[in-house]
Every structure is written in C-alpha cells, then in structure tokens.
Design a protein around this nucleic acid. Structure first.
Lengths: 196, 196
DNA sequence: TCAAAAACATACCAATTAGTATGTTTTTGA
DNA sequence: TCAAAAACATACTAATTGGTATGTTTTTGA
C-alpha cells in the first residue's frame, strides 16, 4: 500500500470515528462517511470489503489506541491509587477536549449500540475494556503493596465499580449536562478515600 | 377512542418498546413494528402522526411507568438505606425477568442513543431519571434522620453515584455478561456500608 | 336505524441504504 | 520505460426507509 493510499484509508477511519461518535454506528451511512472524507464509493469499498470491516478497523486502529491513551496510560506510573484514580477520572471527564458531553464517550456508545449485535465488535471492545480494567487493578494492587490501600480491598471489584461509574456518568451527562460530572467526581473522591 | 382502538394503540406501543429495547430506536423501523403487531401502516399512522410521536408515547406510557416500578417503588418505604439500596439494585440486576443482559436496560439504551438527538425524548427521559434520583435522595435523607447514615453524607452525590454505577454496569454487562453484575454488587455493598 | 366520524387497510412514493459493475488513473518494480 | 497491479471514480442496483393518498370497514350517538 502506497503512502497516499494509507492516508486515504486512515482518513476514512478517522472521519468515520468522528461521525460514529456523534451519530451512532448504524445510523452513520457509508454515504455520510464518503461525503465528509471527499473519498468516492469506489475508494471506500476498495479499502474495506464492507461497512462492518471498516467499523472493526476503526475500533482497532483509531478508537483503541486513542481511548487507551486517555484511560490506561495515566495509571502506568501511578503510585497512589486514591489520588491517581481520581486524577485519571477528572482528566477524562473534565479536561479531555475531544469529548462532547451530550455525545458521551465513543467507546461506551459503541458498546451500548453494538456489543449485542456484532460479535467481532464485541470482542474488540472487550479487549479495550480489559486493558483499562487491568490498569486499574494493577494500580490498586501497587497501592496496597505500598501500604496505601487497605489489605481487604478487592482490586477487581474496585475496577468494575470505577469502570461502571464512568460508563454511567457518561450516560447521565447526556441528559443532565457537564455539571453532573462534578457531582459524580465529588462522591468518587469520597469512595476512593474509603479504600485507604 | 373505542376500547378496541385503545388496545391497538397500546399494542403498538408495547411491541415497539420490546423491539426498541433489543434493536435500538432508530434501527427499529415502522415496518418492523407493524409486522410484529399485525397492524397495518394505515392504523399505525392513524394513531401516531409520525415515528417520533409514537416513540415519545412509548417512553411516557410504557417505559416510564414500567421503569419507575423497578427503580423507585422499591425505595418508597425504605427504612435502612444501606440495606434497601442494595436490595433495590440486586433485584434490578439479578431478579427482574424482563431484562436481557446483552441488551442492557431499555432506559439507559434510549438515553445513550437519543438524548443528544431528540429534545422531547431527552426531556421525557430526564423526568424518569429525576424520579429515581429523588427516590434515592429521600431514602438517604430518611436514613440520616433515623441515625443510620453519617451526617456528612451528601445524598444528592450518593444518588448520582449510584445511578451512574447502574448505567455503567448495564453497559459492561453487554460485553462481560451477567457475572460482572455480581462483582459490581459486592463492591456496591462495600460502598454503601461506608455511608453508615 | 343510519349518517357521520373513527378506525383501519392497501397501494403507492421519493429518499436513502449497502453494495457492485465497470470503468479510468496512478503507482510500482523490473 | 512500460506493463502490470494498485488505487480510485462513476454509474448503477435492489432493498429498505418514513410517510401519504385513497380507499373500506367499524363504531358511535342522536
């Protein structure tokens, strides 16, 4: 594949990601995508044999690395879970310029819409969730080893609890607006404090 | 409206609710609905001037009362928030026979899909959320008045925190299956205990 | 009972959908 | 340089979409 062809392909995936984020996967048409990319239908179906194959590539090549950077990387060198998990969540909800409150989180949206309808999408999205889960588990376990987390704390339970809080507040943000993020974060801080 | 006509109308709304729950609102076509209801297109558009008007009626007349029964009613005579909030959530996630794990929660699904795209849907879904929120707030406030909840607990924060946990675990359930509900509930119990 | 209104049925329509058939242009490597 | 392969462009298609036009049947109330 030539560099130009690779650029065309990536352009399709990135523009599709933006459209799917705001409109949903099944309600974003191939015609929508080629219109915003200025790419013709021939080019689209040359790079992807059908819409779902493009969708899967979009998840793996655009959403996966992008979301992981926002979710898991902030936790890599975390030394104090109570503080660092809060910082990660605060950055994710309040500071990330990509997210639009009324459109929620692209990964959560896609899980909501497609997990029950496309097995390959489901697998790819599960991998992303697993990465985040493991990052949180490691963070908590490291904190416990450093004596900053109570020994009886179950790190996997904490991971699920934090992940579900994130998905849910992205959902509530769609109806209540960004203010509810602040309320959520205040109680998240209370919860995290009880782990130490 | 005759009793038979009312039955036709309600039948449309209930069947539509089931289809929308499993497939999403925008990907459930009017043709899908009339096929499963055995009602003709003429009858459908006699009762509703367009698809969105039917959708709004479906939210207000089927989803709203049905969800409120599962969300808020269990809290009406709650005397002990730590126990009763857990019981409500346990019943909601583990015992309600209507919900299918891979399809999540109908209300959460609709918020995810439509809150950012239809102002009237948004308003109706916000009302439902508000009802649940107020039920949780009252429950916590009553518990504090009874000396079962720490005075410094912020009941509105708790309500948002619990609601977001619910929405998020319905999302995670779509990729991880029902087992993750159990893990979530275990940590919810820990969290609720810290409020007392 | 009987006309008017309500309730429903059938046949259509223009727009949109994912995808294909058949080209032309651009790039590549010997 | 030049033929073959890669990359892209155009014009189509059959199925599906929400909705309408125009009926027929059923119900209602005086």
């Amino acid at each position: 594949m030539s560099a130009k062809a690779a650029a065309t392909r990536l352009n399709i995936l990135q523009k599709a990601f933006g459209l799917v984020y705001q409109n949903g996967y099944r309600t974003t048409s191939v015609d929508d995508i080629i219109a915003t990319t200025q790419v013709t239908k021939g080019a689209f179906f040359y790079h992807f044999k059908n819409k779902d194959e493009m969708g899967l590539a979009m998840i793996n090549e655009v959403m996966y690395p992008g979301m992981l950077a926002a979710l898991a990387e902030p936790l890599i060198n975390a030394t104090n879970p109570v503080a660092d998990l809060y910082i990660m969540m605060h950055a994710l909800l309040m500071e990330n310029p990509f997210f639009i409150t009324k459109y929620g989180c692209p990964a959560i949206n896609l899980i909501e819409e497609m997990a029950g309808h496309n097995e390959l999408f489901n697998k790819a999205l599960t991998q992303l969730s697993n990465q985040w889960q493991q990052a949180i588990v490691s963070c908590v376990d490291n904190g416990r080893a450093a004596g900053k987390i109570k020994p009886e704390v179950n790190s996997l339970q904490v991971a699920y609890f934090i992940m579900s809080g994130y998905g849910g507040i992205r959902n509530l943000g769609k109806i209540y607006g960004k203010e509810c993020y602040t309320t959520y974060l205040a109680e998240l801080k209370n919860y995290l404090t009880t782990l130490s």
